[in-house]
Design a protein around this nucleic acid. Structure first.
Lengths: 145, 145
DNA sequence: AATATTTCATACTAAAAAAATATGAATTAG
DNA sequence: CTAATTCATATTTTTTTAGTATGAAATATT
């Protein structure tokens, strides 16, 4: 049970965009450098997030990206759904590849409950929350200097 | 973020053992059949669980396994720790391979909180709880027949 | 209009991890 | 002594993840 690099990068990307003024365009190259992410890999991560409206684009020279919605309205759950290849903790929880043991499985209900608990947690954390956490931490550090 | 087959199998194994009388020995072959798990794969899963005292063994002919502790005292968290190859959701949370961005990472605190929440959940579910859930479900089904 | 810069789209490769299999040693009941 | 069973390790196969490569499409600037 590991968080993929894809999701980790994607979250950092969104937090970065959300922390900047939405009228300032940020380019892949710049973001990649800032966040230590391979440029081409980042491009691939951006696409589905854009599709989901989490970020917006200006194409062509001097183009770039900006946050697509108010950060309060982007939950981490949504980021998971888009980037984590299979957002569900177990295949049997989402009817695809339905396991034929499903009905007799001694652990199905437990996994289901666990999955729900995790999802609920992720639904209740927004990108804005993370930006806020980060800022508070930064201020605390400044205080001691 | 997927639960590994290893952990899923291991949990089923423990729930099965916990549901039987501890003085009844169950053999790998039988468990594997009952739970639709490849025999040799199951053997590999048993070993670390045994090491952790979650199940106990009688070797040789007519040997087999039985639950190693009261099921109330085996948390799912413990099963994860033993079977999930890297129990932590992110490497940076456990000081090994320490990411050099750790201190400046915009998302570190979030991941840390999330990890703690997940662990807390798993610590508070025991094998006994799962056995109970399963039994109640079974009874409910019986009622309608 | 030409050029440089930037995003878009897809295909491919490499590395790592997970799942499963294979082989044979050690132990013990009968 | 033999058969049944667990123990231990090595190997193979499959799947997933991470990253790279190539080039098209769009647009600002000159």
């Amino acid at each position: 049970m590991k968080i993929s690099t894809r999701t980790r990068y994607g979250l950092r990307l969104l937090v970065y965009l959300a922390g900047e003024n939405p009228d300032k365009l940020l380019q892949v190259k710049e973001i990649a450098k800032h966040e230590s992410i391979p440029v081409k890999y980042l491009e691939q991560i951006i696409r589905p997030l854009k599709k989901a409206g989490m970020l917006k684009v200006v194409r062509g020279a001097k183009g770039g990206y900006f946050i697509g919605r108010r950060p309060e309205n982007i939950s981490v759950k949504e980021v998971f759904d888009v980037l984590e290849n299979n957002s569900s903790l177990l295949d049997c929880l989402q009817n695809k590849n339905t396991c034929e043991r499903k009905n007799i499985c001694s652990t199905f209900d437990f996994w289901n409950n666990f999955n729900n608990a995790v999802n609920e947690y992720l639904e209740n954390v927004s990108i804005a929350d993370i930006v806020k956490m980060q800022r508070e931490k930064c201020q605390k550090l400044m205080f001691y200097i």
